[in-house]
Design a protein around this nucleic acid. Structure first.
Length: 137
DNA sequence: GCCAACGTTGGC
DNA sequence: GCCAACGTTGGC
């Protein structure tokens, strides 16, 4: 079981929309590092859902429901997508400001390479953020 | 709106 | 294969 973090821009696709639709195809990744993460995702992996720009906070957890497959929004065979379904909404959102203050999270990808749209998260970081979100997985 | 960080492109 | 120029992202 692996853990990840994805970033969505709320005005494009927010957690609220996700809540209504229950599942989504995570498409549009056009960055090799992010793409590599997509390729490593396995069914059942858990994914932190982060809102960039507006909010700047982790709002909940999604679950990977498929292995990666070719991105149907492009003919370019280099790009892949996975499907995500809603898992749990955080009782309390965890803001970027909050995470920056946590000693334990200093080595997190989100804080070190903020521009990646999909990134791996260690189990320790994942568990800790869930705790901050007052949510038991 | 600005700017830092990073990725991509293209000329050589 | 190097590197300058440019584009994009996202926090502030």
């Amino acid at each position: 079981m692996n853990y990840w973090l994805v970033k969505s821009e709320p005005f494009k696709y927010s957690w609220d929309t996700f809540t209504i639709e229950k599942k989504t195809m995570w498409d549009g990744v056009r960055n090799y590092q992010a793409r590599n993460s997509i390729k490593e995702m396995k069914k059942g992996d858990l994914v932190l859902w982060y809102h960039s720009n507006e909010g700047m906070e982790v709002v909940g957890i999604a679950k990977v429901t498929t292995e990666h497959y070719n991105d149907p929004t492009t003919d370019d065979p280099r790009w892949f997508v996975v499907d995500l379904s809603i898992h749990k909404k955080f009782k309390k959102t965890v803001t970027l400001v909050q995470m920056k203050q946590e000693e334990l999270l200093q080595s997190m990808g989100l804080l070190r390479q903020p521009r990646l749209s999909v990134m791996p998260v260690t189990k320790d970081h994942f568990d800790y953020i869930c705790k901050l979100g007052q949510t038991i997985v």
